Simulated assay, not measured.
Amino acid sequence: MLFKQMNYFVSVIEKNSFTEAAEESFVSQSAISQQIRLLEEELGVELLHRQHRKFFVTPAGDYFYREAKRLLADIDAVITETKRVGGDSETQLNLGYLRVYSGQELHQAIAEFSETYPEVSINIINGTHEELYQELRQNTVDVILSDQRRAFSAEYINYELIQPKVYIEIASRNPFSKKEKVEIEALKNIPCILVASTEQQPLEEDFYRNTLGFNGTFLFAESLEEARLMVIGNRGFLPIEIAGTLTGPPVSVKRLPLLKNDEALIRNYCAFWKKKRTNYYMEEFARVLHKFFN
């Protein structure tokens, strides 16, 4: 069966005319009629019931029309993407991830993706949620690994990866380290340590205070390593999501589940990218990342 025959058949149905379909396809009417008859012979069913100068679509023809139209659309998409991929001698994929993320899944996904698609050059940045969101809006990154902080937008692909529980890391010599779990409200007299640049500190504090419910004071670190050193020094506690595989806490630090109103605090990690800019490599990287998270 030729895809050309499927195209002819779909055109005849949509134009409701052999003549107009022939004109659209730049062939003669007799050529289209012959190709559709050959198609019917190959399938062994009647697709069009001809009566004088008119024709009627049979039930088999109606089914074939709907499925052929879907298949042809898929084929067009494959051809377009193949041409795009093949047209670039080197393709770039710009990735962003949360500065507080320290799991192994991103490393594993990049390693597998790079081995499978060596023609793709990967660039990586990190930042806070808002910094990554702005990079995505400005098209300076293609895909970001980030937490969900606002309602999903129809302008983006919101590819959910994992819903980790929130823990805190706190110095072993702090009395709270003797507990098995801890409520947010109980921590109001201990500083909360967040990782954020000077410009992003107000936004991070607002989210943790007004959305998650941390009611105490806040301290800030430029990196996750610096934040953990502050924890070891018993300067406060560090909220952390167990997103995928995470190494054990540093020496002299205890990691405790965090509760809010006696229930585990849950976050939502996703891969985000703009729907209008989506391509095969973005989708494939998100699929690989999802595999390692699960």
Rank of each mutant, 00 (worst) to 15 (best):
residue 115 E to R: 07
residue 115 E to D: 06
residue 115 E to V: 02
residue 119 E to Q: 15
residue 121 S to E: 08
residue 124 I to C: 06
residue 125 I to S: 05
residue 125 I to W: 00
residue 126 N to D: 15
residue 127 G to T: 07
residue 130 E to C: 12
residue 131 E to T: 12
residue 132 L to Q: 02
residue 133 Y to T: 10
residue 134 Q to Y: 11
residue 135 E to N: 13
residue 137 R to C: 11
residue 139 N to R: 15
residue 139 N to L: 13
residue 140 T to S: 14
residue 141 V to G: 01
residue 143 V to A: 01
residue 143 V to S: 02
residue 144 I to L: 07
residue 145 L to H: 14
residue 147 D to C: 15
residue 148 Q to G: 01
residue 150 R to S: 13
residue 152 F to Q: 07
residue 152 F to V: 03
residue 153 S to K: 13
residue 154 A to G: 06
residue 155 E to T: 08
residue 156 Y to C: 05
residue 157 I to H: 07
residue 158 N to Q: 08
residue 161 L to A: 04
residue 161 L to G: 01
residue 161 L to I: 14
residue 164 P to D: 09
residue 166 V to L: 15
residue 166 V to I: 12
residue 166 V to G: 05
residue 167 Y to L: 09
residue 168 I to G: 01
residue 168 I to A: 04
residue 169 E to N: 12
residue 171 A to C: 12
residue 172 S to N: 07
residue 173 R to D: 15
residue 173 R to G: 07
residue 174 N to P: 04
residue 174 N to K: 06
residue 176 F to M: 11
residue 177 S to W: 04
residue 177 S to I: 04
residue 177 S to K: 03
residue 178 K to A: 15
residue 179 K to V: 06
residue 181 K to C: 08
residue 182 V to S: 02
residue 184 I to W: 03
residue 184 I to S: 03
residue 189 N to K: 13
residue 189 N to M: 10
residue 191 P to C: 02
residue 191 P to N: 03
residue 192 C to I: 07
residue 196 A to K: 02
residue 198 T to P: 03
residue 198 T to K: 15
residue 198 T to R: 14
residue 199 E to N: 12
residue 201 Q to H: 11
residue 203 L to H: 11
residue 203 L to F: 14
residue 204 E to L: 08
residue 204 E to T: 02
residue 204 E to F: 00
residue 205 E to W: 06
residue 206 D to W: 10
residue 207 F to R: 02
residue 208 Y to R: 03
residue 209 R to G: 04
residue 210 N to R: 12
residue 210 N to T: 12
residue 212 L to E: 11
residue 213 G to E: 03
residue 213 G to A: 05
residue 214 F to C: 05
residue 215 N to A: 15
residue 215 N to S: 13
residue 216 G to R: 04
residue 220 F to V: 11
residue 221 A to H: 05
residue 222 E to D: 15
residue 223 S to N: 07
residue 224 L to F: 10
